[in-house]
Design a protein around this nucleic acid. Structure first.
Length: 302
DNA sequence: AGGTGTCAAGCGTCC
DNA sequence: GGACGCTTGACACCT
């Protein structure tokens, strides 16, 4: 009898709590080209440290912070940073080979806003995210995750994206936009969907359909490796608040039903890499495996 | 040196 | 009508 091998890979978002920040910034009033250069260099150095830590700990899933380039989509940043730092980006891009690297623009990025200037800013922000991923020479399988909005306005905004941003865009279900309408919108736009388990529980759709079947349903939107998000309710906090740390039992249950599927799972927890390591232990990873060495390494169990 | 109000930005929700 | 929360902290000024 062949043992079921895990294909589920786990990772975390933006911050490693043990390492320096890759999101240093400055106040708009203090922006100068040289200050921006200093901070970009510093943030790329910090990112390199995080990537090497991830590699040493066998973590192959990571979300880049939107603040890697200060004012990356703002007129105040006039640098051709992708050009100036091209060799450095290429260097870090090599460290990312074999990893799932994505981004997730913040709450200010509202592609479906009724205000034209807000849509302009969202288009610029998404162009920035694409430019960032492209600077690392990451192909279109490396995605930009965005929440949905009213379908008609969202589609109108989508039409205005740069080709690169459109090719990387994926939609995520949330409390306002449950999985069913998000799948419908994503189908119209021809983009994949990130299944967020926690948001789905808060705003369910497809009544009675089990988690595994939902993940499989969503998998049909992907032509590259599927990304999912996992988090749980923070005890005692308002509904929807993310727990500080991995809920081990809930994750074990999740892994029990989808662990054999080829998923890249971003854990959305405050304690970041600690929970990622805990999740890996539950999946039976060996500590210190190199994720880019081979796919077989990642799937190996104790 | 350490504490803390504020910072580019949106918008729905809750009080 | 104002504060809060989001995926998320760091800067900059004050004592």
């Amino acid at each position: 009898m062949e043992k079921t091998r895990t294909q589920l890979r786990v990772g975390y978002a933006c911050v490693n709590t043990q390492l320096p920040s890759s999101a240093r910034t400055l106040r708009l009033a203090n922006v100068t080209p040289d200050r921006l250069r200093e901070l970009i260099a510093s943030n790329l150095d910090a990112l390199e440290t995080i990537l090497r830590w991830n590699e040493a700990h066998g973590i192959a899933v990571f979300r880049l912070t939107s603040n890697l380039i200060p004012f990356g989509s703002h007129a105040a940043n006039e640098l051709a940073w992708w050009d100036e730092f091209a060799p450095r980006f290429a260097e870090l891009g090599r460290l990312m080979q074999g990893m799932s690297i994505s981004t997730h623009p913040g709450q200010y990025t509202v592609l479906s806003s009724v205000r034209p200037e807000v849509v302009d800013a969202a288009v610029a922000e998404l162009a920035y995210h694409d430019r960032l991923l492209s600077a690392f020479r990451l192909d279109e399988s490396h995605k930009i995750v965005l929440h949905a909005g009213p379908p008609e306005r969202f589609a109108a905004g989508f039409e205005r994206l740069t080709p690169g941003a459109a090719a990387r865009l994926v939609l995520e279900n949330d409390e306002r936009w449950p999985l069913e309408p998000v799948l419908e919108l994503a189908g119209e736009l021809g983009v994949p969907v990130v299944f967020d388990v926690f948001h789905h529980e808060l705003a369910p759709s497809f009544p009675g359909e089990r988690t595994r079947d939902l993940v499989l349903r969503v998998s049909e939107t992907w032509s590259s490796r599927q990304e999912v998000h996992f988090s749980t309710q923070a005890p005692g906090k308002r509904p929807g608040a993310h727990a500080d740390a991995l809920d081990v039992d809930a994750f074990r249950r999740f892994a029990a039903v989808v662990g054999d599927l080829p998923l890249d799972c971003v854990l959305e927890v405050k304690d970041k890499e600690r929970s990622a390591l805990r999740a890996q232990e539950l999946l039976g990873y060996e500590r210190g495996r190199r994720p880019s060495a081979s796919a077989a390494d990642l799937r190996s169990r104790r």
